[in-house]
């Protein structure tokens, strides 16, 4: 049996290039390319990932550079894609699976819940599955039905999975490298409306890759703390900017990782303000925000001046594109929630 080499650094990293304007899509592509170059056991697979380079071009050029055995156009069957990836990981490879869209990943749900999440546990650690499942998720791109779901709650409710989502170009690269290097299965949720967001950036040394499970404070504040992740991070930063006109100084915590959940960073940020609003795009009922709000309340109760509020998508099936702007939490809805944080009693 060929032993796979876990981890990343297998060949010396090239000298870092000077920062240049880069999209999140390009950073993800670079992360895949660097991971494949560093570790022969990394295999990319999914629908249209080969010749086409993926419908979002995240796998652009990988089949040409590494061959079709390492960047494979699979049959169009998500359970089969993930199921065969499980077998590949059992053999010692490190598959990176692309689910083409959030709602197209549901056929793979049984493989994910019944096998991916449990194999390590089932076998007392004898058979870990170093698997990354990339899922473009969320709305805001004008997609027709089944192209805009926020499905993270299904995954974070499943013990055995890590669930991460980047909000910046830098994190897109770092978190994807960390996900591929992880010996645990990672559901890597890519906020597709941020694919074309840009930053001046160059690839990091693997040593600088942030570990999975650490939230980051994007903005410190004194009035209230917005706790968010993925596609809602830029919205919250915009809201914090706009809040200055109202006289509020809002902090913003980007969770980056829903599982593991970084309670320390969140609790410290909320204690500093005594008020918190959790913001996400997916439906509120039974969503990530419910868990986050509960944990903030449990950890920070005596520091809170107001109940923790949530701003989330409505509890409706994802709307048609011409109506989606009413569903997505925007700056105004976030500021309305901040306004309801019982300031009169302060």
């Amino acid at each position: 049996m060929s032993a796979a080499t876990p981890g990343v650094a297998a060949r010396p990293a090239p000298a870092p290039a000077p920062p240049k304007p880069t999209t999140m899509a390009q950073a993800l592509n670079q992360a895949l390319r660097d991971a494949m170059a560093a570790d022969r056991s990394v295999h990319v697979m999914g629908e249209d990932v080969g010749t086409l380079g993926g419908v979002f071009r995240i796998t652009d050029g990988l089949a040409a550079e590494f061959g079709e055995d390492r960047c494979t156009d699979t049959p169009l069957a998500e359970a089969g894609i993930l199921g065969t990836a499980v077998g590949m990981a059992m053999y010692g490879l490190r598959p990176v699976v692309e689910m083409q869209f959030d709602a197209f990943a549901y056929p793979a749900f049984e493989q994910l819940v019944s096998h991916v999440a449990r194999m390590r546990n089932r076998t007392r650690g004898a058979l870990p599955l170093p698997l990354t499942i990339r899922i473009p998720f969320g709305g805001g791109i004008g997609g027709v039905e089944h192209h805009s779901d926020s499905s993270e709650a299904y995954y974070l409710h499943t013990p055995g999975l890590h669930v991460v989502t980047p909000a910046t170009v830098e994190d897109a690269y770092g978190l994807l490298r960390a996900a591929i290097a992880s010996d645990d299965p990672v559901v890597f949720m890519e906020p597709k409306r941020l694919y074309w967001s840009k930053a001046d950036w160059s690839a990091q040394e693997p040593a600088q890759v942030p570990p999975i499970g650490r939230a980051v404070v994007r903005r410190t504040g004194r009035s209230a703390t917005l706790v968010t992740y993925g596609p809602s991070v830029p919205v919250c930063l915009e809201a914090a900017e706009a809040a200055k006109e109202e006289g509020w100084d809002l902090g913003v915590v980007d969770l980056r990782s829903l599982v593991p959940f970084d309670e320390e960073t969140v609790a410290a940020a909320v204690r500093a303000t005594g008020r918190a609003v959790v913001v996400h795009e997916s439906s509120g009922f039974g969503g990530a925000g419910a868990e986050i709000a509960a944990r903030i309340t449990e950890r920070c109760f005596h520091h809170l001046s107001a109940p923790v509020l949530r701003v989330a998508g409505f509890d409706i099936p994802y709307p048609p594109p011409m109506l989606e702007r009413h569903h997505l939490p925007g700056v105004d809805r976030i500021l309305d929630a901040v306004g309801r944080l019982q300031w009169e009693e302060a």
Partner: peptide
């Protein structure tokens, strides 16, 4: 559900 696992493992062995 074990059948795709078998296929993936066999495929992994072959490409290795």
């Amino acid at each position: 559900t074990q059948l795709p696992h078998a296929v993936g493992l066999a495929h992994a062995a072959r490409v290795s």
